[in-house]
Design a protein around this nucleic acid. Structure first.
Lengths: 337, 337
DNA sequence: CTGAAAGCGCTAACAT
DNA sequence: ATGTTAGCGCTTTCAG
C-alpha cells in the first residue's frame, strides 16, 4: 500500500503538500493540486487512518454500545447509528455489553482506546452516578433510551409514560373497562414507566387495576404466554390486555387462542415497540411505535456534534421522543352497555 | 489521558519496559513488572490503540460488511461476529453496504484504511471476479453466505439446495402432492438454490411443478401476501406451499387466512431461515433453521486466523453449513388417498 | 504557495 | 533484565 511519501516522491512535491491536498487545504496551487490528485489516483493511495488519528488526536469514528445485537430492537438501533455514520463518513465501532455492568464499562473503555470520541450508549445496568461521571469524561457520550436529569442534554429517550397512557386511553375510548397488564419482571425504567402510564390513565378514568390483574414475566414471547396463562389460571376477567412490549403481546395472543379466546373479539391486545413481529402475528398487532432507528440516528448526530464542538453545553434541554399509536387488528371496540 | 511516558516516568523505568509489561513480554523482572502494573492502574493508563496499530501494522479489529442491520437476519449475523470479537478481544468495525456494489467496495476500503485485516463480508452484488481479486489482496477476507469455487476455503455458506430439498421431502413424506412455491424476484444465488432444491426433489418423486405454481415477489411479508394472492387469483390448487423465506411465509399465511383457507388444515406452509417472526406468527411456522449466528462466529474466527497465520492456504476445503428442519405448527399430513 | 522538521504514542531491534 | 533509539504515516507549525 502506497503511503504519503510515495505519493510525494512520484508527484515531485513534499509530503506536506500531499497532506494539504488530502485535507482539502486551500493553500495549494491548482496545478500542483491536480498533479498530486492524479498521482493519488494512480497509486491508489489511501491515507492510513491510524496515523491520522494518532497525530490529530481525533478520529472520525463513532462507537455504539448496546446489549444484544441479535434482538430486533438493537439491530434497528444499530442501523440508525450506522446511517448517521455513513452520512458523515464516520466509521462505526461496535461493542456488545451483553447486559453486564462491567462489560458495559469495558466496552466504553475499549472504544476510548481507539480514541473514538463520539459514543452512543444504551446502558441497561450502570447506575446514574457512573454514567454522570462518564459523561463528564467523555464530551461526545450520548445516552439512548434512558433519562438522567443531571445530564439531560445528553439523553435521547422516549416518553414511555405518555406512550402507555395513549394506548390505555385508546382502549378506554373503545369502551374497555376490564384491564389486565403483563409486564417485565425487571421493573426498572421502561417497564416501570409504561406501567405508570397505564396506572395513571386508568386512575384518571376511575377504573380500578387490581394487583391480580398484573402479571410479571420475562419480556419475550414465552414470557407473554406464561403471563397470560397465569392470568387465566387465576380467573382474572379482562377484555383489554396491555403488554409491556410486542414480544410479550405476541406470546399473549398465542396463549389466548390456545385457551379458546379470540383476539380481538374476546380480548383486545396492544403491544409496544412496533417490531417486525407485530406485523407477523395474526391478527397483526396494534402497538405503540417506538422510533428507535430515528432516535438512534439523532443520537449519533448529537454525539458527533458534542464531540467536535465543545461549545458551552446547553444543559437546559433534553431530547424526548414520542411513540405513536399504530392501529392494526388486535383491538376491537366493546359495545357500551 | 496518561501515556506510556508518564507511566515510565512515575515508575522510574524506561518506556520499553512499560511496553514489555503491557505486551506480556516475559523478560521483565518481577519486582519491576509489579511496580509498573501498579502505576498503570494508578494512572488509569490505557495504551493508545492507534499508535499500537501504526507501529505494529496490525490491529485487533475485525470488520463486518453487511447489507442492512435493521433486518433480523443481518442483526443476528452481526451478533455472531461480535461474539467472536469479544471472545478474542477484537474490536468490531461495521460498515453497511446498503445493497449497492459500490458501497460494498467503499465499505471494504474504509475498513482497510483502518488497517483492519480480518473482514467478514456478506456480499450481495459484487461479481465473482471482483471478490476473488479482493480475496487475493486481503488474506483475512472471508465471505459469508456465498460460495465461490476459486476461493472455496474463504467461503462460509449454507447448503440451500439441501435445505430446500429437505423441506420438500418432508412435505412429500406427509403425502402432499400439490405444491406451490413463492420465491424472490431476485433469482440470484439463495432463491435460485432453494428453488433448485425444491425442483429436483419434486422431480425425483415424479411430481410436476408447473410454472404457474411458482410466483415471484419481493422477499418480505407484503411480497408473500401478494404472491399468494396471485396464486389464488389464477386458481392454482395446492396443499403445500414452500416459501423462499420466513417473511414471505408469514405473508402467505396472512393471505391464506384472508382468503378463508386454514393453515395447516387446508394448506401447509414452510418457511426458511427461522427468524423470530417464525415464532410470532400463528400457527407458528415450520421452517428450515439457518444457523446464521453460529456461521458468523465461525466466519469471524476464520477471518482472524487467516489474517494472522499466513500459513499456506488449504485451498481444498470449504466451510459448508447445513440448515435444520424445525417442525412447528404450519404443516399437517394429508391423508393418503 | 511550498518545504523542512518536529513530534503523536508506541514497538522492536540493538545495546548494555 | 533493562535502556536507547529509530521509525510507523501522518499533521502542523514555522520558514522561506
Amino acid at each position: 500500500m502506497a503511503n504519503i511519501k510515495d505519493v510525494a516522491r512520484v508527484a515531485g512535491v513534499s509530503i506536506a503538500t500531499v497532506s494539504r491536498v488530502i485535507n482539502g487545504n486551500h493553500k495549494v496551487g491548482d496545478a500542483c493540486r491536480a498533479r498530486v490528485q492524479k498521482v493519488i489516483k494512480e497509486l491508489g493511495y489511501r491515507p492510513n487512518s491510524n496515523a491520522q488519528a494518532l497525530v490529530s488526536k481525533t478520529k472520525s469514528t463513532i462507537g455504539l454500545v448496546t446489549p444484544k445485537l441479535a434482538m430486533t430492537f438493537f439491530g434497528t438501533l444499530a442501523a440508525g447509528v450506522e446511517k448517521t455514520a455513513r452520512e458523515q463518513s464516520y466509521k462505526l465501532l461496535m461493542a456488545n455489553s451483553m447486559y453486564e455492568t462491567q462489560s458495559e464499562l469495558d466496552a466504553i473503555n475499549s472504544l476510548r482506546d481507539h480514541n473514538c470520541q463520539a459514543i452512543v450508549l444504551h446502558s441497561e445496568y450502570s447506575d446514574e452516578k457512573t454514567l454522570i461521571k462518564l459523561a463528564e469524561e467523555i464530551p461526545g457520550l450520548v445516552l439512548i433510551n434512558r433519562y438522567i436529569p443531571a445530564i439531560a442534554h445528553r439523553c435521547v429517550w422516549l416518553d414511555n409514560i405518555a406512550g402507555a397512557a395513549h394506548a390505555t386511553q385508546m382502549l378506554l375510548d373503545k369502551n374497555h373497562r376490564d384491564f389486565a397488564v403483563i409486564t417485565s419482571i425487571y421493573q426498572n425504567r421502561d417497564p416501570g414507566a409504561r406501567l405508570q402510564g397505564i396506572r395513571q390513565t386508568l386512575a384518571g378514568a376511575q377504573i380500578p387495576l387490581k394487583d391480580e390483574a398484573i402479571e410479571e414475566s420475562t419480556a419475550n414471547i414465552e414470557g407473554g404466554m406464561q403471563a397470560v396463562e397465569a392470568l387465566l389460571a387465576r380467573k382474572v376477567r379482562f377484555t383489554a390486555l396491555l403488554a409491556y412490549n410486542d414480544l410479550m403481546a405476541v406470546g399473549a395472543i398465542h396463549a389466548l387462542f390456545a385457551a379458546g379466546l379470540r383476539v380481538p373479539e374476546d380480548v383486545s391486545v396492544v403491544g409496544f415497540d412496533d417490531l417486525i413481529v407485530a406485523r407477523a402475528c395474526r391478527p397483526q398487532l396494534t402497538t405503540m411505535h417506538y422510533p428507535v432507528e430515528e432516535m438512534a440516528s439523532y443520537a449519533a448526530r448529537l454525539a458527533i456534534e458534542l464531540s467536535s464542538n465543545s461549545t458551552a453545553e446547553p444543559a437546559h434541554r433534553t431530547h424526548l421522543f414520542l411513540s405513536q399509536l399504530i392501529e392494526r387488528d388486535s383491538v376491537a371496540s366493546r359495545s357500551a352497555n
